[in-house]
Amino acid sequence: MAKQYEFRIKGLPYLLVLPQMVIVFIFFFWPAAQAIWQSFFLQDPFGGQYIFVGLENYQALFTDEASAYAQSFWVSVFFAVSVTVLAMSLSLFLAVQANKKIRAASFYKTMMIWPYAVATLIAGVLWLFMFNPNVGVVAWFLKHRLGYEWQHLLNTGQALTLLILAASWRQMSYNFVFFLAGLQSVPNDFIEAAAIDGAGPARRFWKIIFPILSPTTFYLLVMNLVYGFFETFPIVHQVTAGGPGKSTAILVYKVWRDGVVNLDLGGSSAQSVILMLMVIGLTIVQFRFIERRVNY
């Protein structure tokens, strides 16, 4: 291939990337380096004296009973996986329904898509308002009509359920957009041919449509896990504040509370580094997969 035409002006390209690079260095690389650096130190929050402690901050996370890091980790995993499964399966099901040749399909699509605009915090507020034990309509209904007491500030199971419902409610529209786009790219000929060969709707879905959707599904799997692990801070902060006790303090909530509220900079930095490794891992999985898809 002949070399593409390119401008040859000394200096100008550097000027063009300068704003981007300045921000990247000041607000991304420098803080990330700081997090790594500080995770090896113990700082007294008032005097600012640093004492090198090696890996002690990391060790403390896993051995210190009070830090309850392992518990936070497993709650996060449970939460992220539940949100992923619930939000993905429901939105796939609904995308299949909306993709059928039915009346008002575009109305349904708009209704399914627009909640993407709802902030995760607002999703938390909406669900909190329904389930608030004092003013919530749903909580009232559960108690007075079904005899089920809803107290998510006292009951860990209820607290987690509420968080999962609110987070999934918000994420469904995102998944719906991608599943619908994926379904629209499935060639109709395939499906008709299978129908003529006598394959029923369920068989057509699992044998033809679902495999064609697999790149979309995989992409969404990673994105939903990222969402569940990292982007659900507002919901937790609003709905349960990590409670009851610390039982719903997911990792991002914990890193915020340990740093901002408890001023444990070393411990918070060590947690940041662990989170960074998790994001890097997920991003690598994502890109390896995309590369492979491009190749075949």
């Binding site: 690079m21 803080p31 990330a32 990292f230 991002v252 890193v255 989170l275 960074m276």
Partner: peptide
């Protein structure tokens, strides 16, 4: 690549140091 790497550093994972900056 510098721009690419920012994908791996969302605010959530560098809260305290970015605040300090």
């Amino acid at each position: 690549w510098s721009i690419f790497i920012t994908l791996m550093l969302p605010v959530e994972v560098r809260i305290m140091p970015t605040y300090k900056v």
